[in-house]
Structures are given as structure tokens and as C-alpha cells.
Amino acid sequence: MRLAEKYGYLPYMVERYLEIFGSLEETVEFLEACEHPLRRSIRCNTLKTECSSLESRLREKGFRLEPVPWAPHGFWVTGSTVSLGATLEYLLGYYYIQGAASMLPAYSLSPTADDLVVDMAAAPGGKTTQLAQLMGNRGAILAVEASRRRVKALRASLNRMGVTNTVVLRMDARMLAPLKNTFSKVLLDAPCTGEGLIPLDPSRKRSRTIGDLKKASSLQVELLLTAIDIASPGGVIVYSTCSIAPEENEYVVSRVLRMRSGVRVSEPGISVGDPGLIEYRGLLFEEAKMCRRLYPHRHGTEGFFTCRLVKEK
């Protein structure tokens, strides 16, 4: 309670952090890290430019850049003289402002020009444009977004980044169920409480109740069930959230695997992150060790979770 009060969190959140990290010391480390803004990062858009050329143009403008070791197109921006979203290079679509951790799901999904891909919660377009980049604007992507307002931002991102292999559909992704066994790659970056984004938005320390957490978790289960159903046999599904809540992550994956046979967790194909939680509040989920968790105090990123599933042939 004292920690929650000191750092301004709702008490249920800190109680869970103590369980996740297993020690008071690390919980405090985590809470401290959340007090500081994160390094910003960008993803160079190879659909429109070469990364080396972008790098030199931005350096000329006074940006200090460092490659993100686990993201081939990612750069940390450690210093800049102008706002990242106000450069000509940004407007030309040469880069996307994207959290380094949130670049991981697309790399984990690893789509190619031969894939039919669906991005089930696509706005504002960071991951959709990254998928298109990895596919070289070939193949096809269905980008689904329920919110009328957010679909506009999604379209603007696709236009700015030069994406031409995508169809945008405004609907609740749960309604995709009739498209069973259709997509070779499915990305579900699920709507979540955003508990991993506290360093970027401290209001989240108190704005999400345990009721919100339960609601998010139920929605995520429904969405992940749909994701599995619409994946083709042999298809890959990547589930991710910008939350560190096990209720939105390992619990969701574990519950869905109990409800659907013929799906398994697989190695994520990324070189960063801690294994998922195998045990949490009585839940045992051995396969979660192949999922990945990222934390501000350990990885210098937003709190993030990603897990790769394969649907058997």
C-alpha cells in the first residue's frame, strides 16, 4: 500500500507487480523506471528510402541515432533538435515513430510476399505499415479497425508510408469469424489496458480499474479465438499487447489454448525479452516460456508482451 501511495498507483496494480517480479527490490526498480520517460524510437521505412540515407539526413538535422540491436529497421533517438513528428522526412514517410518493443510482433510474424495477412486491430498503423514493409508491398494485408476515428489515422499512415498492398475494413475483428482458415499470417496486437505504457502516460497508474482489466481480458480471449479460427492450417498467429498484466497475456493465451485444439506456442524468432510467466496466481502454463516479456527497467522499452502461435496443418 505504501508503494502504491508513494508512486501514485492503484493498490491492486502494485500487488500484482510484487507477484510478477517476486521481490520488493525489483518491483521498486520497475516503479522507478516508470517514473522516467522512455527513449524514443523510429522505424526506417524501406518502402520509401534506404536506412543509411535516412540516418545521414537525420544526423545532419541534429538527431542522435543508435540502431536498436533487435530491430533491423529501428533506431533509438537519443537527441533531437526538432520534434520527431515535424520533419520533412517524417512527412515523406521515410520513418514511423514506433516504440522499439512494438516493432517485435511484425518481426516475429515475419510475413513474406507470398502471405495473406490480417492485422486485427490495425490503427494507427505502425504494425500494418511494418508488415507491408517486410512484404515489400507484395502479397496482401487486411487491416481491420473498429473505431471510425482511428481508421482515419490508419489510412493516413498507410498513405504516408507508401503502403499499397492493404485493404482497410472498419469493423469489429470478432466479426471476421466467417473467414475461417483463410489467412497464412495473423497479427493480433490486442486492445489492452496499456499497463506497459505508464512511462509514456502516467495517468494510466490510476485510470484502469480491475474491472477494466477483466473486461480487456475477456475481449482479448474472444479476439484470439477468432484469430486462431481465421488462420489457415499451418498458419502463424502473433498475439501481443502493450501491457505487462498476466491477465491480458499468459492467461489469455493459456485459456484460448484450452478452448482450441491444434494450436501450439512456438519460439518467437526474436532475440530480446524475458520468457513469459510460467506460474502466476495458481495458473501454471509451461509453454509461456516461449512467449516474450519486455520491461522498462530491464530492456529500456515500454512494457510489452508477445507470443507466437502456430496452427497445425
Binding site: L116, R138, G139, A140, L142, V151, R155, L158, T164, N165, T166, V167, V168, L169, R170, M171, M175, L176, P178, L179, T182
Partner: peptide, 20 residues
């Protein structure tokens, strides 16, 4: 490929908001 995808979406009875 994108045109083919719009045909698949047709099964949902929905119109794309944008494409290609």
C-alpha cells in the same frame, strides 16, 4: 493480390474503406 482479398472480404458483406 489485393483485388483477390477484396473478393474474400465480400463474403462478410462489408465494403472496404480503402484498398491498394
Amino acid at each position: 493480390e489485393v483485388e483477390k482479398l477484396t473478393g474474400i472480404i465480400g463474403r462478410l458483406g462489408r465494403h472496404p474503406y480503402s484498398a491498394g
